[in-house]
Write a protein that binds this DNA or RNA. Structure first.
Lengths: 248, 248
DNA sequence: CACCCCTTTCCATCAGATGGAAAGCCGCTT
DNA sequence: AAGCGGCTTTCCATCTGATGGAAAGGGGTG
C-alpha cells in the first residue's frame, strides 16, 4: 500500500492512494490514519498525504545511507577532478540501485537522483555489479536483455564476453546503451566482503573522451573501499551518538 | 514496532526486536517476516534484520530529502566560505530535525548526522525555528526547558526575550548551551510558506569569533530560500523521470 | 441549483491476528 | 558428554480486530 508512493507521486490524496493500491476508500482511510498516527505518513494542509519524517529517519538507518555518507567526499573529489557526473550504485535484486549521484559542474545544476534503479546489462555500473555477482544472477538477467536504445547490446554471447573482460581489466563501459547521447565508465568498489558497489562516471558524447578518467576513477574507488573497511568502527559509534536520542 | 530500530541499533535479531517492541516473539516473527517480504526490512546472513532498501527509497520521497538536495550546494559553499560546520534543520514537533550537516574542513572528517533531533530552546537553529513558530509551540516548549550544560538558559523570561530579539534581528546564537565547547549561529530560511528551515553554523570556542560569518550565512539562507521557491517545478519533473521506474 | 469528486463515519459480517507452547539449533559452561 | 540458556521457527485453538458497502457531509464547478 505504501507502493502507491513513488518518485512521480510524492503527495497523494486519499482517493489516489486507494485507487493506486486497489483498495476501497474506507480501508485506505483507516490505514492511512494509522500510518499518520505512527508518523510514517504526514498529512498536508490540502488533505494530501506524503511520506512522514519518521519514515525518512528510518530510511537513514538503511545500509545505502551509510555507504553514501562514507563515499560522498570522494565523489565530490571525483567530480571536481574529472568535471563529469559521478554516481555510486549497489546491487539490488535485478537492478543497480543508485546510492548517490553528483552532478558535473556547479553551474549546470543537474540534480542527482539517489534511489533510482538502473538496468544491469546496459549501464557501466550495472555491468560491473553483474560481472562480480554470482553466476546465477547473470543467468537470470541475460535471459531477455531489454532494449533501451538502438545501441543497447542484447546479444547474450556478446554480453557474456563483456562481463568476462570486465572481470579481467576491472573497468566497464556503456556507450549510449541505456540513454542516447550518454556514455559511462565504471569500476568496482572493493569492500570488506568482495565488491560492494560500483563507482561510475557519466558524460555526454560531445565531451572529451572518458578514457583519461580511468585513473581518478580507480583512485576514488580505492579510497571509498578503504574508507568503508577502515571507517566501520568509528562510524557506528558516531551514529549512535548523533541519532540515538529518539523523540515521542 | 519499527521504533525498535534507531541510530544505535541498525541491525537487530528477532528476539531483540521483540523485546524492544514489547511483543511476544511469535508475533514479532510474523511481523518481521511480512516486512521482509515487503522489503521494508532485510535479513542479513547472520540472522539479524536491518532497514531494507524499499524503506530507504520511501524515505527519499519525504520532504526533508527534497530540502536537503536543494540546499546541499549552498551548504557546501557556506562550509568553504566560513571553514565551519554548517547544518540545516526543520521543525519537527518539539524538536529541530537536522536535515543535513556538513563538516568544516575536508581534513577533519567529522561526520554529519542527518536525522538527529536537537532541542529547540538551547541550539541556534532550534531558537530560530521556535521564534518563528506559532506561539502555542513556545508555550509548550518553555514549560520545562531541559538543562544540557551549565550554560543552558532555563529561565523562561530570558528565553522569551531571546526569541523576541531573534524575530527582530533575524539571527540566533547559542554559546555552549547544548554542548560544552560548541557555539552556534543560525538564521531563518524563508520559503514559499514562511520560515521553512533554519541554517546554522557550528564552531568550537577556540576558533575565531563567529560574528564575521553572519554575512555568508544570511547569503546562503537567501540562496536556499530562492532555490526552494524557484526550483520547485523542475525538481518535481526531475525526480519523476529518475526515480519513477519501480521494480518488482 | 445540481452534479461530481472528495473525505469521513458507521456497522454487520467475517477473516485473519494473537501468543502460549513445543520443537529444533547452536554455542557455551559444568 | 551432558546440560543449559539463548535463539529461531512452526503449530493451532482462541477471539479480537479488519473489512468494505452504504450513507452522510463538504467544496468546488458548470
Amino acid at each position: 500500500m505504501l507502493d502507491a508512493f513513488d518518485g512521480g507521486h510524492q503527495a497523494l490524496t486519499l482517493s489516489q492512494i486507494a485507487r493506486r493500491a486497489g483498495l476501497p476508500v474506507a480501508t485506505a482511510h483507516r490505514h492511512v490514519a494509522d500510518l499518520c498516527a505512527a508518523r510514517l505518513l504526514a498529512r498536508r494542509p490540502e488533505a494530501t498525504y506524503e511520506i512522514g519524517a519518521r519514515m525518512w529517519r528510518l530510511g537513514l538507518l538503511a545500509p545505502p545511507t551509510r555507504l553514501r555518507e562514507t563515499a560522498l567526499p570522494y565523489l565530490q573529489d571525483l567530480v571536481i577532478a574529472t568535471g563529469h557526473t559521478a554516481h555510486l550504485a549497489v546491487l539490488d535484486g535485478q537492478h543497480a540501485l543508485v546510492v548517490e549521484r553528483l552532478a558535473g559542474s556547479r553551474t549546470q545544476p543537474t540534480r542527482h537522483s539517489p534511489g533510482a534503479r538502473l538496468p544491469l546489462h546496459c549501464t557501466a555500473v550495472g555491468k560491473v555489479l553483474l560481472a562480480y555477482a554470482p553466476i546465477a544472477l547473470s543467468d537470470e538477467v541475460l535471459r531477455q536483455p531489454a532494449r533501451y536504445t538502438k545501441w543497447t547490446v542484447t546479444d547474450v554471447v556478446a554480453l557474456r564476453r563483456q562481463l568476462a573482460t570486465i572481470l579481467r581489466v576491472g573497468v566497464a563501459t556503456s556507450a549510449q546503451e541505456h540513454r542516447e547521447g550518454v556514455s559511462s565508465l565504471a569500476v568496482p568498489v572493493h569492500g570488506s566482503s568482495g565488491v560492494v558497489a560500483a563507482l561510475g562516471i557519466l558524460a555526454p558524447l560531445t565531451s572529451p573522451r572518458l578514457g583519461g578518467t580511468v585513473g581518478p576513477l580507480q583512485a576514488a574507488a580505492a579510497a571509498v573501499g578503504a574508507a568503508l573497511i577502515g571507517g566501520d568502527l568509528e562510524h557506528v559509534v558516531d551514529s549512535e551518538r548523533d541519532i540515538g536520542d529518539e523523540g515521542p
